[in-house]
């Protein structure tokens, strides 16, 4: 019974975080809210598995936790350096193409 309440709470919190995604004045606000939504989805998947009697869903939440963490850092790198390569945004322009 409490599991259903917790799942509902996760849903409400997700809606509130979505409000921040829509309204957030800076991209960092949006990223923060998306990260929070990811955490809530992880909890929600696990809770849903327990409610439906299939607790194997926890595997999916492990995977989602890893993806959420790496995705946040990828977006942060994109914000701070302007690209995802070795040298940030400059990775696209190689010396060969620049000269030749």
């Amino acid at each position: 019974m409490m599991m259903i309440v917790a799942l509902a709470g996760c849903g409400v919190a997700m809606v509130l975080a979505l409000v921040r995604v829509a309204r957030g004045p800076t991209p960092f606000d949006r990223l923060l809210a998306v990260n929070a939504i990811g955490t809530l989805v992880i909890l929600g998947v696990a809770l849903h598995g327990f409610i439906m009697g299939r607790p194997e869903f926890v595997d999916i939440s492990i995977l989602y936790a890893v993806i959420n963490f790496i995705g946040t850092f990828a977006i942060l790198k994109l914000f701070s350096t302007g690209g995802l390569g070795d040298r940030g945004g400059k990775a696209r322009i190689t010396p060969e193409t620049d000269e030749g």
Partner: peptide
């Protein structure tokens, strides 16, 4: 049940603070 309720309260308070 109590732990789940506490966690739900923490989640809701955090989301409210986020907004």
């Amino acid at each position: 049940g109590i732990l789940l309720a506490l966690g739900t309260i923490a989640l809701l308070v955090g989301a409210l603070g986020l907004v």
